[in-house]
Computed example of a mutant assay.
Amino acid sequence: MINSPYQKYQQAQLQTASPGQLLLMLYDGAIRFIRAGIKGIEEINHEKANTNLCKAQAVINELIAALNHDYPISATLYQVYEYMLHQLINANLKKNIIPAEEVISHLTELRGAWDTAIKSLNHNVESIE
């Protein structure tokens, strides 16, 4: 049950977002959770680190589930996402921020590429109309 106005806003945002916006939101969420996990490691708060790194893994699993295997790039993205999952598990088990920071770097780069592609696609669609 949604109680707060912020939760209602978030729900509405999710329900009205385009597929491209949802993809970017997944990337943003994963990055946010990894940063919180890193902070947990730095604070020696193992529960915080574990909870947030596991949430980031769940988001990456959603990215894997969303792959459209009709396109050859999906196989490459699948391998990249699997590598990221491995690095997050490693960071969580060893409480080492370096693998988590590497994943943030990859996610940030991929998010930027998707953002550019989505904007280009939207621009092209607007030009046709």
Rank of each mutant, 00 (worst) to 15 (best):
Q13W: 02
G40A: 09
E102G: 12
L53T: 08
Q11C: 00
V59T: 09
M1E: 15
N45A: 07
G37R: 02
E43W: 03
A117N: 00
W114R: 01
G20L: 00
I44G: 00
A49I: 01
V59R: 00
S74V: 06
I31T: 12
V125N: 03
Q57F: 12
T16F: 07
A117H: 04
A36V: 10
N45Q: 04
L22K: 06
A65F: 11
E129T: 11
A56Q: 05
E47N: 04
L23I: 07
N90G: 07
N96G: 03
K94N: 15
N52K: 08
N122V: 10
Q11T: 10
I118M: 10
S74C: 05
H46T: 11
N68E: 15
R111C: 04
M84Q: 07
P5H: 05
I104L: 08
Q10L: 14
Y71M: 11
I31F: 03
K55Q: 14
N124P: 06
F33D: 15
K95E: 15
L121Y: 15
R32L: 13
M1S: 14
I128L: 12
L88H: 03
N68M: 02
V125H: 03
N122P: 00
Q57G: 09
M1G: 14
S4T: 15
A113I: 05
P72G: 10
M25C: 02
E102H: 09
Q21N: 09
N3D: 07
G29H: 04
Q87Y: 04
I41W: 15
G37E: 00
D28Y: 05
Y83L: 11
Y83K: 05
N50P: 01
Q7Y: 04
E101M: 13
A58K: 07
M84G: 01
G37N: 00
E102S: 06
N90A: 09
V80C: 10
Q21M: 15
Y27G: 02
E82F: 00
A36T: 12
P19T: 02
Q21I: 04
A17G: 06
W114M: 09
I34K: 04
Q57C: 12
A49S: 15
H123L: 06
T108K: 05
R35I: 04
Q57A: 08
D115S: 14
L107Y: 02
P99V: 01
P19K: 01
I64V: 08
V125W: 00
Q15F: 00
M1Y: 14
Q21P: 03
Y78D: 13
Q79K: 12
S74Q: 05
L23A: 13
A12C: 03
P99G: 08
Q57M: 14
E42Y: 01
L14T: 12
L24I: 13
K94Y: 13
P72L: 06
V59H: 01
A117K: 03
S74P: 02
A75I: 12
Y83E: 10
Q15P: 04
I31P: 11
G37C: 02
K55C: 11
T51V: 13
C54S: 11
I2N: 06
I128Y: 14
K39V: 14
A65H: 05
L63Y: 02
A91R: 04
L63E: 03
L53S: 09
H106A: 08
N92L: 02
T51G: 07
Q15E: 15
N50A: 10
N3K: 10
K39P: 03
E47V: 10
E102L: 07
